[in-house]
């Protein structure tokens, strides 16, 4: 066990790389290289495919508060599928936990990982999930609203796993009658019943006080957040 984390540097261009916490990979802000942390050193994975500007108002470094715990947007995973692209923003919470802010079609949801045992063996494999069907997960009746096969397109900042562009993964989104949002991550194989569940809820950017946000020509920037709200 080493002490305070030493400053890491990009093996490609030598610029400082802000790898920290649970982060496994980072994209170099200077040269765009994807760097992965191994047990002994930093390894260069290669040039990352560029992030596509899909109109998200969120920027790396935005800060907010979810269920009263402050968080920072530490990374972005951009994912593409048949109907376009969306963003999964990697959140690091002040209490040391992590989460994801899903950002698609102007709707936002924050989810946090839960134990596979909650759903393991009790949900259908990805190939058998029907959109519109009802599944009971952790005692909550949820409706499958999306079943997708998606590819990692690009990333920025730090991420808790290596997401090489082009890698295909399988996911299912469910929503509940009380605003619940659950995502099942089947990983890179659709034929098993042991997805990682992510639980959370839809959020409004105003309510989580996300700031700063990107600016859009012709639109007044939203007000800086007032007193924190939950």
């Amino acid at each position: 066990m080493d002490g305070a984390p030493a400053q890491s540097f990009c093996p490609e261009c030598g610029a400082p790389v802000p790898l920290r916490g649970t982060a496994v990979t980072a994209v170099c802000e200077y040269c765009g290289s994807t760097i992965v942390r191994t047990d002994v050193d930093l390894r260069l994975v290669g040039k990352v495919s560029a992030i596509l500007d899909n109109g998200s108002p969120i920027v790396l470094g935005s800060r907010g508060r979810f269920r009263n715990v402050p968080f920072e947007v530490a990374g972005r995973l951009q994912v593409g599928y048949a109907r376009g692209t969306w963003n999964e923003w990697f959140l690091t919470f002040a209490d040391g936990t992590i989460g994801w802010l899903a950002d698609a079609l102007g709707q936002f949801a924050i989810v946090r990982p839960r134990d596979v045992a909650i759903v393991g063996g009790r949900v259908p494999p990805h190939v058998h999930v029907q959109v519109g069907a009802t599944l009971t997960i952790d005692g909550i009746q949820l409706v499958v609203v999306d079943r997708r096969v998606a590819d990692y397109r690009g990333s920025e900042g730090i991420l808790p796993f290596l997401a090489e562009p082009g890698v295909r993964y399988y996911g299912v989104d469910l929503r509940g009658p009380g605003g619940e949002f659950v995502s099942l991550d089947y990983g890179q194989r659709p034929d098993h019943a042991y997805p990682v569940p992510y639980f959370g809820e839809s959020v409004d950017l105003r309510a989580i006080g996300l700031h700063p946000l990107r600016r859009f020509q012709g639109w007044p920037p939203p007000n800086a957040p007032g007193p924190a709200r939950t």
């Binding site: 610029a15 400082p16 802000e29 200077y30 109109g55 920027v59 990107r214 600016r215 020509q217």
Partner: peptide, 20 residues
């Protein structure tokens, strides 16, 4: 103190989105 490196290049997808 590490010598300050040149500021990272700004990313266009973080700058103001322009009308077109």
């Amino acid at each position: 103190m590490v010598a300050t490196a040149a500021a990272p290049p700004s990313k266009w997808y973080r700058e103001e989105a322009r009308l077109d």
